[in-house]
Design a protein around this nucleic acid. Structure first.
Lengths: 193, 193
DNA sequence: CACTGTAGAGAACGTTCGTTCTCGATGTCA
DNA sequence: TGACATCGAGAACGAACGTTCTCTACAGTG
């Protein structure tokens, strides 16, 4: 799975810059990648880069917003492909599994951004919080549609979060299957309660 | 809970440096903290700093090793205080809950380090992998002592990982309770199978 | 053709970083 | 006391960063 921006970019050039910056930041971290390298990979001039994104912080935020949109649409696509409410919940972990298989996978970009920039850029911490919040609400809607008690939702979300960091650090995708199996147990227990 | 180094330090000065560097790195990220700030907070000269740790990479690795030792001893203390095998498993989440309550809590230091430095310093990625591996083995031992099937262990570990990142980004400690509740469900389901 | 505005290439600027070097003060042992 | 090692304070160095500025080329318009 290669992530490419699909949501209405500010401009064509802006999208190319975001795509290049996202790949570089995600692979190596934010502080390790300079504006000049982004400029070089994106194939634009430094002047153009700064007229699209007036600072590195602005570029980082744009990258995170694009990542959020790709996450949302990827999950939504996987969930819509499932038929039963129970399968829709489990589709989350199938989506994770295919993501973890990507050779460039290196964990959740928001967790990485939060750890590296959360203190120095409060706007980054806020965006990460919004992203995780939105995921929690999405899971809560699916849980509610499945007729399961509300407290199941944060539990299923925890499994997804844990699977992402575990897969990133261990370097293998097994955690998606473990999360899926645990989710099945939790869902069934909640429905039979 | 304030984390202070408790394991045999290389030297008294080395321990002070590690403690200062750990607090700074954990609070603001690694690249955002320079050697000079570590020197200043630790109250040592730059010369002494470099003779204890010949490079920033060496200091970062020492900080991570100290964090690993504190994590291990903190978990072990909480687990030993519980009596039944089931309660020993749940003690992990009680330990997390008290950690999340610390005002300085900002997620798992190894996940943060992996995201920021994992690519640029392979040694950091390896240390993070070892840390998570050691935790997985520890949980597996507790699961085995409880007479539960082995596949329960990675599921319980996922809950712990997810709770850490969720607590960090959301800024509240509820995820520990959610993880504990989910763990109870998974344990009971595994024991009644 | 002249004129004007815009663009790209990249030099330049000021700051910060990791690391090393200098220098003066202090302490130790014969 | 004097010779010598050791130390802290901080200057210094080279590299890299984020950001801005300069210069040249050229497109479009009369």
């Amino acid at each position: 799975m290669t992530m490419t921006a699909s949501i209405t970019p500010v401009s064509d050039t802006g999208a190319r810059i975001i795509e290049a910056a996202d790949a570089l930041y995600y692979a190596r971290g934010f502080q390790a990648v300079g504006m000049d390298e982004v400029r070089s990979v994106a194939g634009v001039s430094l002047k153009r880069l700064y007229q699209e994104f007036p600072s590195k912080e602005a570029l980082v935020l744009a990258v995170l917003r694009s990542r959020h949109a790709m996450w949302d649409s990827g999950i939504a696509r996987a969930v819509q492909a499932a038929s039963s409410p129970r399968d829709k919940l489990l589709a989350i972990y199938d989506y994770l599994s295919s993501w973890f298989g990507d050779e460039s996978f290196r964990g959740c970009g928001f967790i990485n951004a939060f750890g590296e920039l959360g203190t120095v850029f409060p706007s980054v911490a806020e965006l990460a919080r919004e992203h995780k919040d939105s995921f929690q609400r999405y899971v809560a809607d699916l849980v509610s549609a499945a007729g399961a008690p509300a407290q199941l939702a944060p539990q299923l979300a925890l499994l997804a979060e844990g699977a992402q960091t575990t897969a990133a650090i261990s370097g293998n995708a097994d955690s998606a299957a473990h999360a899926r199996a645990a989710a099945e147990t939790l869902i069934d227990a909640a429905l039979h309660a």
